[in-house]
């Protein structure tokens, strides 16, 4: 199964990267961890995200679309980075996350979410919606 692994933001990560020995150390540890993930055939993708001050949100309500500039409040709910992993089950994903070096200077959180696969939709939604989803993917991949 594929899982998305989110590193949650903290006040530190929201301030952006400032060069320091501590940061270098963390990068080195994270680099080693990533290497482990690659060597185990687990890691498919992963990136770090810039602070929400450089992000934007679009709020939806009926026909209206409102663009909101970052930074955003509720820091703990923000995402600071992600991985995409291929694991056998959630237990394996949890084991790997436990091995992750502290992703932030202070207390922080990592969240694991299984990714929907086409098989999950089939039987739950109508074939028409599955077809619609497929059409969407087709357009997406036309890029």
């Amino acid at each position: 199964m594929r899982v998305m692994v989110f590193v949650k933001a903290t006040a530190d990560s929201e301030e952006g990267m400032k060069p320091s020995a501590k940061l270098t150390e963390m990068f080195e540890a994270m680099g080693k961890f990533n290497e482990e993930l690659v060597k185990a055939g687990v890691m498919l993708a992963g990136e770090g995200l810039k602070p929400s001050s450089e992000g934007k949100r679009v709020a939806f309500d009926g026909p209206s679309r409102t663009v909101i500039d970052g930074p955003f409040a509720e820091t703990r709910e923000l995402v600071a980075g992600y991985w995409l992993w291929e694991v056998k089950d959630m237990a394996e994903a949890v084991e790997w996350v436990k091995r992750c070096p502290n992703p932030m200077f202070g207390p922080s959180e990592i969240e694991i979410r299984p990714i929907y696969e086409m098989a999950d939709f089939e039987g739950i939604v109508t074939p028409e919606i599955v077809a619609q989803e497929e059409e969407l993917r087709e357009k997406l991949s036309d890029r």
Partner: peptide
């Protein structure tokens, strides 16, 4: 298939 892909990814990492 998944097992072979995992082996392939491991080899690619090593």
């Amino acid at each position: 298939c998944a097992e072979a892909q995992r082996l392939g990814r491991i080899l690619a990492g090593l």
